[in-house]
Write a protein that binds this DNA or RNA. Structure first.
Lengths: 208, 208, 208, 208
DNA sequence: AATGAATGAGATTTCATTCAT
DNA sequence: TATGAATGAAATCTCATTCAT
């Protein structure tokens, strides 16, 4: 008896234990694909090593499941942003703020993004799916907003895609900073403040 | 009493195995630390597996050598930028242009940065040394320029460190794009153009 | 509050891999620590190489287990001897006879003793534990008997510890002879007869 | 121009560097055959690794040379003892005293004997040659003395070979003690005193 | 004769995967 | 479904031996 308003997005075949995926995400994010040991995943998931194979055929399979599973919440965000009919600046602030809050702060997401970057040579299909389902749509969305604003004369001429990269870049930098340099003693970045100040700056800089 | 201008960074003990370091950089950047096979490194360096151990005690040692070895050219760049006495905007354009040209485009450097990010949990000492010798000094440099410009009234109030992140972020995004998404079919970023347009934007946005 | 009479010596964690320890003892005794190949141990134990690592972390760990495991039966012997309240001569005859029968003749024990001697420089902790748990207590026991006998006037003056070495020495010589020279054609020693004749001799020689 | 009274015993082919043999003896005695590294031998001998191969074909060859080379001084001792025409007790005291002084105290000799014992399974030819040239002749010598003394009625009936083992055993025990247990804190044995007291004891015990 | 960098065979160790229970 | 002992392929690392100099 599923709730009626259930998201239509395809679930994994029935009861793929969320605990296993959660544990695997942790371990993969900490160690990378190769260095992650399935025994550790099993231990953290509270199951036996053998049990993993009841749900996933291979380690690579589990890895793919982890990385693709992390897509859907992000997809929700992108879609949410897309449907909201709000003015240009407000939409950008919303979008970047969302990244700043949800994405930069959530270790699960920064972990997966780090994995996609780190393992893109060994598992290019993951880069592909992230690009196609999350990154490119999100980028298109922002780019589209800018194009519209340019048409209305609210934004000066310039490659809208490059504007989008200029807006998003510092958010990626924040993630990397948090994952890589803060743990070794670097001064933390106040991501919310960065998002605000940076948007102030580029929005002003993008004016005609 | 070192000769003036001498690079401070100690070279690896052996000068010969530059080929080994080059080969190892390639393989580590392609596969990551764990997935890289020393046999592959040896083959690309044109030596036997055993020969690696004449110069590096363990695989981790070779890895550390690769990553720390990639520091010194970047250190040179940062120091070069520091000594040039030029006006604020020009200095930033120089610095970011340098990143855009040499750093973002050079597979050897993007590869190492990706490694530092990917392996920061397994080899935190590498994150530490990169932060202390390259990342933080570079950031300080840019932040210092901004502080000066603010004192002269050329830049509006605002956290100078966050301005610096706002300027640098898209360069990191470009690296990641190049390493991760271009190989799976994403439309390339014209990094030089991005650097230009982004600087135009933020410099304008940072004006009082 | 341990049950009385319980062996003090902690058993190896796993009870199953007694076969591994037995096989390892064989191979180590035949070849020494370094020359012993774990593949050979595994084959004789009827398991795979990998299985050894389910029970012992390293080759050195397995080696230590083999050598310390051989302690407890000897400890039992020493303790058995200690508790028997019998006259001086009879006690010595019992003890030396025990050495002659069980210890000198049992390939498992002579093998371990040879290993302790041969590897004492590379694994001094084994010499330590053998000395502390078996050799020194056994020696103390014999020395104590002699001291008592001297007090009663049954044994002439003289360093009781040196008397003990004089009694025990030929037993060690027998072990070495059996292990080293008999296999290359030396005429065997009748250890029981040696024990008897030697005790006759030294007991007579120790009389006042 | 050799001195006329030169011992007739065959020397190694000309100039086999004594330094190499001495260094090899040290390293083999410390570590055993397998664990000894030729690089260490070369370093202690003050030559290069390659130079070893100018004098010895293989590691095993060097090992055999070390162990057989240590025979001749011992052979000299045995022969010296044999030729001296002295009364029974005095001969035994001389022989055992010689063992006690020269053999037990000389690390070079105890080291080789330990090697012969430890490696007898891997290099049985060394056990053979030691048995045939040193051990058995020495034993025959002592046994012969005892047989003569028995004929003269100076020694009571009993297997003369077992008497010999009874006399020699504690000397072997002393060597083992020195090599194995003293380094880990065991109280040293005063070997000279042991030799004296033990001979007093067994000579008295062997009287008719 | 001598060097020591280089080789490559062989040993230990790891761990994803299987399978009897 | 679930377990976890066991496997075995593959990777790291060692070091006796060779050989160009």
């Amino acid at each position: 008896m599923l709730p009626p308003g259930e998201p239509k997005f395809r679930r994994r075949p029935a009861a793929r234990p969320a605990e296993i995926l959660a544990a695997a995400l942790e371990v993969f994010a900490e160690r990378g694909f190769q260095a992650a040991r399935l025994e550790e995943v099993a231990k953290r998931a509270g199951v036996s090593k053998g049990a993993l194979y009841l749900y996933f055929e291979t380690k690579a399979d589990l890895f793919r499941a982890v990385v693709t599973d992390a897509i859907s919440p992000n997809l929700q965000r992108v879609k949410g942003m897309a449907t909201a009919a709000v003015p240009f600046e407000q939409a950008l602030r919303m979008g970047v703020g969302m990244l700043a809050r949800a994405v930069v702060t959530d270790r699960r997401i920064t972990g997966v993004i780090k994995l996609v970057i780190a393992e893109s040579r060994n598992h290019p299909e993951l880069a592909t799916i992230w690009h196609e389902t999350v990154v490119d749509p999100g980028l298109q969305l922002v780019t589209g907003l800018i194009v519209e604003a340019q048409k209305r004369g609210e934004v000066r001429p310039g490659d809208p895609r490059l504007f989008a990269f200029g807006i998003m870049g510092p958010m990626l930098l924040s993630m990397v900073w948090r994952e890589t340099f803060e743990p070794v003693g670097a001064e933390p970045i106040d991501v919310a403040k960065l998002a605000d100040q940076h948007l102030d700056t580029v929005l002003k800089g993008m004016r005609p």
